[in-house]
Nucleic acid binder design. Sequence first.
DNA 1: GTCTATAATCAGATAGAC
DNA 2: GTCTATCTGATTATAGAC
Lengths: 197, 197
Amino acid sequence: MEKEASGKRRILDSAARVLRTKGLNATKLSEIAEGAGMLAPSIYHHFKSKDVLVEQVMLDGIYNNTRHIMAKVEGRGAKLSAVERLRAAIVAHVEFLLSDDDSSAAVARVFDELPDDMKDRVLAAYATFDNYWRDLILAAAPENSNINSTVARKFLVAMLDSAPSWYRSGRLSGAQIAQQAADLFLLGFLQDGDIDG
Amino acid sequence: MEKEASGKRRILDSAARVLRTKGLNATKLSEIAEGAGMLAPSIYHHFKSKDVLVEQVMLDGIYNNTRHIMAKVEGRGAKLSAVERLRAAIVAHVEFLLSDDDSSAAVARVFDELPDDMKDRVLAAYATFDNYWRDLILAAAPENSNINSTVARKFLVAMLDSAPSWYRSGRLSGAQIAQQAADLFLLGFLQDGDIDG
DNA sequence: GTCTATAATCAGATAGAC
DNA sequence: GTCTATCTGATTATAGAC
């Protein structure tokens, strides 16, 4: 189709990986270039500026993440209850964040650091993602819930997005962390023992 | 006692306020100085470098936040149940984050952006804070909880710390957000209606 | 303790050869 | 499409007067 030069692809992948681990400010073009097998000025053949490159990484990350979650949830078929769908989304989100794919972890790590104007544009790109969560949450909400669904969504996403910042492979697997997140959000900390899931 | 020059105090206060709203990278010494009623080079009479100043703001913020939460919880007296103590801490934490005091919001906003070495030192200063939460959580945990208490603490603090990034005064007050956070964490999203508190 | 210069640094960005 | 220079700009930091 279009010629998505492999150079461009390598730069985007390298950028996501460095951003994920170092954050925006500590991410230097020289390091991105190194990961892509070239030198810093070569990046400018593919991207007009560092900002443009970073913004593309953010947009790709949001797209990949949204698509991944939707695929996981919808792939479970039409038999799932609203609560099971919400649980599946939570699990998919956390597992993707903790996976080898740098897309979503880069976004989670860097979003707060973005310059204001870029943050506004990236936030606009979140619309599909936000709407999907909103629908999942509204569908799963109990009748007379005293919890505001927007507040619940903000708290939920923030909680999940924090996982990469403190998770280290060891005792618990990513899948286990994901289950804990779902249990915690859906059932609460005071809910105990023997839960079906 | 010691002569904590009012200049130093003004710089720290101004720095916390700018950091809270702009994040680390966008916080310029010139703006901190402006808020303190002086020019940028004057800061160097009080602090050896920007890093040293920022680190002091972080340490102060952690200290203030920890002390505030402890005072609120312990001030409620010895009659509180473990769950009520945990709830009081959650509410105090969110209310402090959303208050006029810039201490804790500055930490929540900036922590992820800190350079690695400083982050390590700041993290060490979190020990008192972390231990307090750990104890509150362990005391309130149900007998056979299937939720890891460390994971619960990480998710809880991350969720609470996100509030300043999306909360805007309007419909819901800070106190209401704080209650929602406590309900959500303790009882879960699926818990509905009429909750005692 | 604060100011007016001015230096030093660093990283993003550009020019132009190959 | 990538390289080797080089430039630019912004910001931290220093020197030294007041």
